[in-house]
């Protein structure tokens, strides 16, 4: 075969296959982000609770997540849980479990940070206007919390999307795997690998970059 190897991407349905592979990780990321928001809120409430045990629990959880590479956590769940608990989890389930374990803690910490960042006198002056407690939250505290939280939460989401690429390492057929298959089929096109990996690189960028821009924009606007 002659010419630039980029043409292998346009042979048959190769490009669709690649996008399909990307969707595998994106779907995992979306599920993870959704679950992280839900559990993150619980995590934040737990962190803010007055019970010392709850605080210690959250602290330890957060530290584990901060110290352990996500890949190590993936290995522990994917390879380890079968041995320890006899649970034979497939790659995608392991991934959602691990990334949510990580994402919920990070999201929880962001929510906690956003909640506590609002100066006390905001609530006080709202109360001084005669607002009921629910109104204080509805009109003053929650809007300000969301403004602070949203850009950071979007940032975390792009990190989650990038991190889901790791599922390649526990045998999930995601975009890199599909790419390898394509390269394998076109082994006579020597520079196919270059173009396939380059395009995957660009695809990730095209997915993540808009989120970064949005996050930066919101941060500036709501600063």
């Amino acid at each position: 075969m002659q010419g630039l190897g980029i043409h292998v991407l346009f042979e048959g349905i190769n490009f669709q296959r690649l996008l399909g592979g990307l969707w595998v990780t994106l779907r995992l990321a979306l599920i993870t982000i959704g679950l992280s928001c839900v559990f993150g809120l619980l995590f934040a409430l737990l962190m803010l609770s007055r019970k010392p045990a709850a605080k210690v629990f959250c602290r330890v959880w957060l530290e584990i997540v901060r110290f352990m590479p996500q890949l190590v956590l993936l290995y522990i769940v994917y390879f380890g849980f079968a041995r320890i608990f006899g649970w034979d989890l497939d790659g995608e389930t392991s991934a959602v479990l691990v990334f949510t374990f990580w994402g919920a803690a990070e999201m929880g910490d962001l929510i906690r940070g956003a909640l506590t960042s609002i100066p006390r006198h905001q609530a006080e002056s709202a109360a001084a206007l005669g607002l009921r407690k629910s109104q204080v939250y509805r009109y003053v505290l929650i809007p300000q919390t969301l403004r602070r939280l949203t850009p950071q939460a979007i940032n975390l989401s792009t990190r989650i999307i990038k991190t889901t690429a790791l599922v390649k390492m526990i045998n999930v057929a995601e975009v890199l795997k599909v790419g390898q298959q394509i390269i394998g089929q076109f082994y006579r096109q020597p520079d196919a690998a270059f173009w396939v990996y380059f395009v995957i690189f660009l695809l990730y960028f095209l997915v993540c970059w808009p989120f970064s821009v949005l996050s930066g924009y919101l941060e500036k606007r709501w600063a």
Binding site: T158, A165, Y204
Partner: peptide
């Protein structure tokens, strides 16, 4: 905005 894994493959 790109994963290290993908960068390394490239």
């Amino acid at each position: 905005n790109t994963p290290l894994l993908v960068q390394l493959f490239f």
